[in-house]
């Protein structure tokens, strides 16, 4: 089923992937982060109307590695700098990242990557 980004009207939302149902919150974030796999990410993106391509996966994989290593999702500026270091300067800028993830790399890419929902701290 479709999970809209800022759709708060749904109660008890779930995401169907390969016949399996995953609990997600009102904004589409996975309730159980351990349940994440690539199919879940693809299903989330398709539900948002923009299927994931290799460029998206580069960022999603980076986010998962970063979280695994440091136990936090990187701030956008850190993400930009690190992407620039790993994938080349032409990708290490917010224009590139926002084109990939129009709802904002912090929110949208972290959602697909199965990272905790940002608390909206800044």
């Amino acid at each position: 089923m479709a999970v809209d980004f800022f759709n708060n009207s749904e109660v008890d939302v779930s995401l169907e992937v390969n016949g399996k149902s995953y609990e997600v919150d009102e904004e589409g974030y996975l309730a159980d982060l351990n349940a994440w796999d690539a199919d879940v990410a693809n299903a989330m993106a398709e539900a948002d109307g923009a299927p994931l391509e290799d460029n998206h996966w580069e960022v999603i994989n980076f986010l998962r590695e970063y979280y695994e290593e440091y136990q936090i999702a990187p701030a956008v500026r850190v993400l930009t700098k690190q992407i620039g270091k790993r994938l080349g300067k032409e990708k290490g800028n917010s224009k590139y990242l926002y084109e990939l993830f129009p709802y904002g790399p912090a929110k949208q890419a972290c959602k697909y990557a199965g990272l905790p929902k940002p608390t909206g701290c800044v």
Binding site: Y70, P74, V78
Partner: peptide, 10 residues
């Protein structure tokens, strides 16, 4: 504790 290693990135 591993988050302290990210301070340099910040």
């Amino acid at each position: 504790s591993s988050t302290y290693s990210a301070l340099g990135d910040y």
